[in-house]
Structure formats: C-alpha cells, structure tokens
C-alpha cells in the first residue's frame, strides 16, 4: 500500500521532441504534482537529477492570469534561479491555490565534473504550452529554448 501511495504522489517527468529545443512535460495526480514534474523535466534537460544533491532550498512565488501562464512563470522563475545562482534543482514542492503558486526547489551549485551539464535553458516558451487533465492525470508541458 505504501508503495502504491508513494507512486501515486510522485510526479512524472518526461521530454517530448521539438526540432531544435526540448519539450518538458510533467504528469501527476494533482495539478501541483504535474508542475513539479515539469520542473524535474527541466532539470533532466540539463543533467541527471539523481546527481544533484538537494542541499539548499529556494522559494518561488508566482501569480498569473491563467494556469498556462502560471506554468510558464514557474519554469521561468526556476530558469532565472538556475542562471543567477549557477544552480541545479532536483526536488520540488508546489502548492497551487487558484492562480497562485508557492513553490520550493532544492538543489546545489553546478559541479561541472559531477553534473556534466549539457545545455543551458534560456527560457520557457509559449510553444506547446498546455496545462490540462488527460487520461486520468494532470499534465503540464511546454517547449524550453536551450
């Protein structure tokens, strides 16, 4: 039972193909989990999240006119923190109330030898930007320019 409960509450992260860039997709039983999954997929575009130690927490707050822009703002806030702190994140906790998001991201400074980061995310785009409920799960996705 515990295993099933854990699986149900874990975000799923994956990529989808895009010509030159990378599509990030999160799925989960809740909207918040889908947002966490999209954030994890963002890290996966750069490095293996398992190599990133969740040592330091960064708090992020966003508010947007709709859920799609809320996802855009969440991912762009993470990209900004990754850029100015030279950070990678591997663990996320998101609370969404209406169109307000309160998130926490745990990570550490980039270690080029250990993380071997592949690409630098420049920004989350409006291309393929979708938030919705599909096949029994919440899905949050968009293309990230790298």
């Amino acid at each position: 039972m515990e295993g099933k409960a854990a699986a149900k509450s874990a975000p799923r992260a994956e990529h989808f193909s895009h010509g030159a860039d990378i599509g990030v997709r999160g799925r989960g039983a809740t909207l918040a989990l889908a947002f966490e999954g999209a954030a994890l997929a963002l890290t996966m575009a750069v490095a293996d999240p398992l190599s990133v130690r969740p040592e330091t927490v960064v708090e992020i707050r966003c508010e947007a006119p709709d859920l799609r822009l809320l996802l855009l703002d969440w991912l762009n806030a993470l990209i900004y923190e990754m850029a100015v702190r030279r950070f990678l994140f591997s663990r996320f906790a998101v609370v969404i109330e209406g169109l307000r998001l309160c998130g926490r991201a745990w990570g550490e400074s980039v270690d080029r030898a250990r993380h071997a980061p592949a690409v630098e995310p420049k920004g989350a785009t409006l291309t393929g930007l979708e938030v919705g409920f599909r096949d029994g799960l919440w899905v949050a996705e968009c293309v990230v320019d790298v």
Partner: peptide
C-alpha cells in the same frame, strides 16, 4: 547571454497578454 534570454522571457509574456 542571460540578459537577452531574460528580455525575451519578459516581453514575450507581456506581448502575449
């Protein structure tokens, strides 16, 4: 670099809205 990326991010959102 990061300056251009952030300008693109901010104006894209503002123009879309």
């Amino acid at each position: 670099r990061g300056l251009g990326h952030q300008i693109g991010t901010e104006f894209l959102r503002e123009m879309a809205l």
